[in-house]
Amino acid sequence: MKLGKVIGRVVSSTKVESFEGLKLLLVQPIDEKLNAYGEPIVTVDTIQSNTGQIIYYETSKEASMVLDKIMNPCDAAIVGIVDEINLETQS
């Protein structure tokens, strides 16, 4: 489960049937200090996240379980919106 920032939305009309009606958001992986790393990924959103929000996402089969139709090929899903990040002061 990793931190990310929603940076956009992906529209796809021709897709697998189980993706019908789903919101596909573009997420930039970030670390706990909000620095971006790696390439943006496409995730499924079920909790109405918006562009600019800091979220956390899960990958692989468990990600697809957030959807009603669990037999779907999704492998990355937003599972929560971050309100606050508390870091231990580096000792």
């Binding site: 929560g80 919106i81 309100d83 508390n86």
Partner: peptide, 9 residues
């Protein structure tokens, strides 16, 4: 550290 999050899947 930890995160606070009210909106969850």
């Amino acid at each position: 550290g930890n995160i606070i999050s009210t909106e969850r899947a």
